[in-house]
Amino acid sequence: MWSGEIRFAVWQLVLKDYRIRYRNMSLGIFWSLLNPLVMMTVYTFVLTRIFVDPRPAFPVFLMCGLIPVSFFNFAWISGTTSLIDNAALIKKVPIPREVVPVASVLSNALHLFIQLGLLIVLALLFGKYPNRYWLLIPPVWALFVCFLCGISMITAPLNVYVRDTRYVVESLNTVMIWLVPVFYSFDRIPEKYHYIYYYNPVSALTMAMRNIVLDERAPASSLIEKFAIVSLASPVIGYFFFQRLKGRFYNHL
């Protein structure tokens, strides 16, 4: 029986990932800014100079979609491979196994905070000032993190038994960039597909962020409801799925 504190263990694992990641970079957290800046510049150039989209504050519009998609990509992949990356831990220490994928998802949070900081700076530059709906940003992101912990608790054990799982996850990540209205606007989508975009937490978050930052209004309640249902159901389903599979990790790692 393990006698420790789950929160302390998760926190230490997150801290470990953070230290390892940033200590080996001479420019440290600058790299967390560089990647989204490059992506945003390239997309802005292509989409405003080549395919003309005369939308005001286009970089802000883009970042509202790029940040959820890139966090989703990084967090889901690291969550999926977490059990294998920490095989030594799983084989030696009776720490509750759920801690490992959850800590992996959370260790992408610093990267996220830096990017959200960048979004705020861009919003200010384009004349979008803080409004009271900004208070909704932390809770919608908290829901999104719940969603990622849930799906990681499904794909992480699968990846222990079938090591190809990570490639499926990588492909789904590529699909996601087009299933989320990152480059196009939600009003281009035919109405009969709207519910799909509401039930997909990545696109729901993108639209919620645009409502809050660009339109300066609260997201539609039908969107928030569907987003919340999926985001809260996924950790529950993930947890039960994980319980079914965790017993044999020791043999398979």
């Binding site: 393990w2 006698s3 504190e5 263990a9 230490q12 694992l13």
Partner: peptide
């Protein structure tokens, strides 16, 4: 850092 990390993983509060 390793001392604290290991303590947490091995079950110390």
């Amino acid at each position: 850092e390793n001392v604290v990390l290991n303590a947490a993983l091995l079950g110390m509060t």
